[in-house]
Amino acid sequence: MGNIDSLYILLLLATINVVFSKKLLTSLVFLSIFSMLLTLKYITLKAPDVAITEAALGTGLTTLIYLVAIKKTGRKK
């Protein structure tokens, strides 16, 4: 039970950092950390299939596509 509670607290901290960080890149890194913690959460809940999909999509693909979007739009300003 204590294990699950600490994971919840870490997820909450990562989400607060995603919303309230000043730079977009910092926010993106915390989004990736949030996704990784969510993967651990899914493994704890015994859903390895969802965990693998979350790791591939949330940590890999979303980060890369957001990285391109930030790189493309930041140059114009």
Binding site: P48, D49, A51, I52, T53, A56, L57, G60, L61, L64
Partner: peptide
Amino acid sequence: PGGGFTGGVIMAS
């Protein structure tokens, strides 16, 4: 665990 969709996403990444 895993399958076509997950493997495809990993290959594309």
